[in-house]
Amino acid sequence: MMLQSNNTAIKTELTNEPFVPVMYEIKRIQRETEDTFTIDLILPDKKKTNFRFKPGQFNSMFVHGCGEVPISISGNPIKNEKIVHTIRVVGTVTRAIRRLKVGEYIGIRGPFGSHWPVEKAVDKNVIIIAGGIGLAPIRPAVYHILEHREKYKDLSILYGARTPDDIIFKKELESIRGRFDIDLHVTVDRADNKWMGNVGVVPTLAKRITSDPSNSIAFVCGPEIMMRYSAVALQQYGMSLQDIYISLERNMKCGIGLCGHCQYTGKFICKDGPVYSYETVKDLLKTREI
């Protein structure tokens, strides 16, 4: 079973030296939640970066003396004066990144991987479903759509977090809520009665979408179970699986399909993924330990 890929390898200096990171300086660190933060990187000595990426791609972030970790890019793909990553502390390297201070260096290799098909979504309704930290890899797609708002029809964003305290990008979500051209629904899995918003898992929000499902494309990102349940909900709402895109996660180490770790049968998630059409991976999603 060949997996369709929309990866367009961006040829950079990395093409020849794929294991050598470019050093960036931490410009700003912003707390998102108790375990998640956003970090802005610039080239040292105020050099202009020519870093370009497509929404959904990731970088390998390297911390001196510690190691590397693949992190999706959460910044604006149109404004490229800095590289933005939103990171959840889940292991040794992410913990080491959190300990770094403004002015310290991080190595970057990338961008790697396939992207959300924002080109294919032109003239369509776009439905974005994100869960937890899954909003970070999808935020560049939102920026892209908002920068080219006239090219797209309805934009619905359904976002679910564990609790109100776990919601990332709070200020941005609040400002988006005020826009008439975005249909935003935020939900949490559990809350006390101070929370005035929606409570329930994010796939249940699919019934709130009002746009025509036959002319829609969905980008779904979050824990794999949440993406599977969301695909079911989107199908009930009337969408076909080939219009639903998800971002998969496996042990991505080198980012360029050379180290083998992220294999998913015939494909390397780091190179051909992480973004796939649901249709192409639906059978694999049912296979355990693949």
Binding site: T33, E34, D35, R88, V89, V90, G131, G132, I133, A161, R162, D166, D189, R190, G200, V201, P203, T204, G222, P223, I225, M226, Y229
Partner: peptide, 20 residues
């Protein structure tokens, strides 16, 4: 059934607790 499915997903606590 719909609510049961949602409830099961909710029970799984798929986002995991924050790491201190």
């Amino acid at each position: 059934e719909d609510e049961l499915m949602a409830l099961r997903l909710q029970l799984m606590d798929i986002y995991d607790a924050p790491i201190k």
